[in-house]
Each structure stands twice: as C-alpha cells, then as structure tokens.
C-alpha cells in the first residue's frame, strides 16, 4: 500500500500541469456523472442477507452462474498445452473445472467466508465475489489489444476471440478478477509457444440476458434475495438506504473510481479485507482468484488524466514554438541584410 502511494505521488508531482489537469478533469467528471442519463445497470450484494448457502454443497448463485455459462467456458485440448517460453509453467484449469471456492476460467463467481470480530462478538461473513463492472474499467483501458469492452448497460466484457492472454488486465484489476486459461484463443493460431498465454475469463454481467431485459442468473438464483438488480442509480440509493437501516457500510461506490456493484455490510469492510488477507497468509494462497477488499482503492487510470491534458496541449505548444522560431529567423535575416 505504501508502495502504491509513493508511486501515485510520484506521478502526480511530475509536473504542475498534471496536478492542474487532474483537478480540472476530476471536477468535470462529477458534472458529467450527474447529468449523464444512466443506461447503466447495477447490483446490490447485501452481506447482511447472504448466508453462503451453508446448507448446500455449492452456493446457489455460483451454481446458477456455472450452469448458465457452461457453453462459454474454455474448451481445451490438453495435448496442445505448452509452457510459456521461457517460463516453465502455464495456467491450466481444465482439469480443475469443479473448483468453486475461488475465481477460475471455469468459475466466475464464488462466495468467500471470513470470521471477524465486531462489536465484541465473532461473526461469520459471506462475501460473493465477481467482477465489479467498474465505471472506468482499468482492465479495458490498458488492454494492448482492446479486447475488453464496456457496454452501454455497464457490463464489462472480454472478447474471447481477441484476447491474447497476456493477463495484464488481471495485474491492473484491483481485485485480480480475470483468470487465464492456456491452450485456447487467438494465440494458438500464431506462435503459441512464444507469444500470448491463452484467454482471460470473468463474469460478463450476463450481458446476453441484460440485452433482452432479463436479470443476471445469479440474482435470480439467490434464495435469500441477497442480490438485487436494477438501474445503477437505484441500486446506489438502495445500498445507501440499506446501509443506513443496519448502521452499516457500502463498498464499490468509491472503489476503483466507482463500480456497478454495491456491497452492504454491518461489519466495516476494512475488517473484512483484513480477515481475507490474514486467511490468505495462513493458507499461503497468493495466487489470483481470491480477491481482497481494500477500501477506497484508487483507479490507476485516473492518475493519468493530467498527463492526457499535457498531451492535448503539446500540439498547440509545438505550433507556438514553431511560430516563434520562424519569426526569430526572419528577423535575424532582416538584420543581416541591414548590416550589409
């Protein structure tokens, strides 16, 4: 965390224009956010309701998601799996398709369980996890092949025909959401041993269902009604109202610059985050697929808005400098003639 902060300061301090630009653009950002007629959809995940389907083998939302997306999961020919040269390994989940307690290319949502101390008592908290469908998705912004698109309805979707599997999206996602499967996709048609690594998979907000006016599969499946779906605006309101009711907290409204997913919890998210981190430490599980929940985690793309402004000013500055140089030269030649 301290590492990240200093880097951010480094970026912001790099020039005065950057700071000015950031202020200007974040200001403008708010105006736009207020006036934009919202076509965005959103969800509320109410942790005061979710019990992790403790009585079942697999939570209902997880099962519904797996069933619904069966056809979209990678189909791998394991004979063709090869390490990512010069590395010795590759990421293959095709023989672990049953795993449902973390994010994998074959499991796009899971319910994490942590134990926290709060108000003097020990509580079990169940946290369904999946892509947050961010307002300005970091994953889409930095994809070197533009394989990730944010739809009008807010869904952030990876195009599995365009993805090369470099996993940069996972590196820059604050929650390491997209997961990689080797042996499928575009790179297999090029030079599979030397370039690319597979295809990244994650929750697509059931974009196909949203398109026809339906709810995501996981929303429908929850027996406790812990997941609500509606316009993003109404979901944000619902989340804050519910948080007020239970004297709780909201997660997902500020994080990564804003998302379409609003968690509501009685327990502060700092505690949940801490508990997840502690568990990861204890089980020595640092592989992606079990996200933490850092509060107010910043959007890395936002720190670059100021730089973008400098990029916009550069052409004008270039033309002005050219005019200045040309004028000086002209004057110089005139003086030369007068001297002669």
């Amino acid at each position: 965390m301290s590492n990240r902060l200093t880097r951010r300061e480094f970026i912001k301090n790099s020039s005065g224009a950057v700071v000015l630009g950031t202020v200007l653009l974040t200001g403008a950002d708010k105006v736009f956010a207020q006036t934009k007629p919202s076509t965005d959809k959103g969800t509320v995940i109410d942790l005061t309701q979710c019990d992790g389907c403790s009585a079942k083998d697999t939570p209902a939302c997880v099962l519904a998601c797996r069933t619904k997306n069966q056809d979209k999961f990678p189909k791998v020919d394991s004979d063709h799996l090869k390490p990512y040269w010069p590395q010795k390994t590759y990421e293959d989940w095709s023989d672990k398709q049953d795993i449902s307690n973390r994010l994998t290319p074959y499991n796009w949502t899971f319910v994490d369980k942590v134990v926290v101390e709060h108000n003097g008592s020990t509580k079990e908290v169940f946290v369904p996890k999946r892509c947050m469908h961010c307002d300005n998705p970091t994953c889409a912004g930095v994809c070197p092949f533009s394989a990730i698109k944010k739809y009008e309805n807010g869904a952030v979707v990876i195009n599995d025909n365009q993805c090369m599997g470099g996993a940069k999206c996972r590196d820059v996602c604050p929650w390491d959401i997209p997961q990689r499967q080797a042996g499928v996709g575009l790179y297999m048609k090029l030079a599979p041993e030397y370039l690319g690594g597979g295809v990244m998979y994650k929750c697509d907000f059931c974009a196909d269902l949203l398109k026809v006016g339906k709810e995501p599969a996981c929303v429908n499946a929850c027996p406790k009604g812990a997941i609500s779906f509606g316009t993003k605006q109404s979901m944000r309101e619902l989340a804050y109202n519910r948080a007020k009711e239970v004297a709780g907290f909201v997660y997902g409204d500020k994080e990564n610059g804003g998302t379409s997913t609003f968690y509501v919890s009685k327990v502060p998210f700092e505690k949940i985050d801490k508990a997840i981190k502690k568990q990861k430490q204890e089980t020595n599980d640092f592989k992606p697929g079990r996200p933490t929940m850092e509060v107010n985690i910043e959007n890395k793309l936002d720190s670059f808005s100021g730089m973008a402004l400098s990029a916009a000013i550069a052409p004008i500055a270039g033309i002005a400098a050219a005019g200045f140089a040309a004028y000086n030269k002209l004057k110089g030649e005139k003086n030369n003639h007068e001297e002669e």
């Binding site: 400098s310 550069a314 052409p315 004008i316 270039g318 033309i319 050219a322 140089a325």
Partner: peptide, 13 residues
C-alpha cells in the same frame, strides 16, 4: 508528450 510537441513544431516550422 515530448514527441507530439516535436512533431507539431517540426511540421509548422
């Protein structure tokens, strides 16, 4: 940013 400045300076000068 540096390259854009140079490119525009170059074209216009």
């Amino acid at each position: 940013v540096i390259l854009i400045f140079i490119v525009f300076y170059h074209m216009f000068v």
